[in-house]
Design a protein around this nucleic acid. Structure first.
Lengths: 154, 154
DNA sequence: GCAGATCGTCAACCTAGTTGACCATTGAGT
DNA sequence: ACTCAATGGTCAACTAGGTTGACGATCTGC
């Protein structure tokens, strides 16, 4: 098997998953999503508590993360609460809508995985996951991807 | 297995492959590459003969493709030759350097695949490929990804 | 109490797309 | 032969999402 197929297949799989997820989320009350939004909300639900923090979690500058936070605020996915212990910080908290997005996203991805299993079989999908975790999960998966595709890599 | 891991694993695998490929290509005389450049050169070597054509092949507007062609020209990867049959067209042709890039990329990706096989085994990598081809290759893999990650999807 | 780190923000800039308009050229149909 | 729609390339204005650098305000270790 020629190696040049590998990246295209991985990218194709990723795209298909994300495109379909967004299609379904749009149907369920979350239109106008982009991967960057999803990654950010995910990072916040996993513990990123400030814009700077989000920047570190997603691999972008705090200034860029701050712009993303502005979007999340205007889209109603997060809200800020002043930190009583540190007046510099604006703590981020998911709104009910933000929590709904995280919950729905997880459910949709579970569905999509189940559909892959229905087509390819549990063992094939399981092997795919195990293999990628072994090969690509070595240093954890970073989600600062929008910029990465565009900027120089390395 | 939770579905939310799947896209991250696929993206992580893609990133790792492309990052490492660019690192090695930089060592071998092709620095300053970005995924968009590689995709474009690949598309041209696979038959895209004009900027408009390249745009169609990579899923972007002809104007955007034209900007990419400008880069490829200035980086010395392609050259244009006037089309004698159609005075509107500027036919694209890979230079020796462009051909070298395509050849090297293929070799590097073959190496990387072999390294994955060494770590995970031929059957695991083969299953990964077969599975993704089945699931994600249904409508062919598009490479207009830089813009896609950023713009709305669907 | 001071020095240095950190949080948020402003400003200028870069890159890679987009749409719309336009001209030159081609080719199909009458 | 002529018109007219389609196509190739280009210009201009705009958008999105990043970057770096600078800065004031605040916190923390010593």
């Amino acid at each position: 098997m020629a190696g040049h197929e590998l990246p295209l297949l991985l990218l194709g799989g990723f795209r298909q998953l994300i495109d379909e997820m967004h299609r379904r989320l749009a149907e369920r009350g979350h239109p106008d999503l982009r991967p960057a939004i999803g990654f950010a909300v995910q990072a916040i639900s996993h513990g990123a508590t400030t814009a700077s923090d989000l920047g570190r979690a997603t691999g972008v500058s705090k200034q860029a993360a701050s712009k993303t936070v502005d979007q999340l605020l205007s889209m109603g996915y997060v809200e800020t609460v002043p930190d009583e212990r540190d007046a510099r910080r604006k703590a981020l908290r998911l709104t009910a809508r933000g929590v709904d997005l995280v919950t729905l996203s997880g459910a949709v991805l579970d569905d999509l995985r189940a559909e892959w299993v229905a087509v390819a079989g549990e063992s094939a999908v399981g092997t795919l996951e195990t293999t990628l975790r072994l090969l690509a999960g070595r240093e954890g998966v970073r989600t600062d991807t929008a910029g990465w595709l565009v900027a120089e890599s390395g």
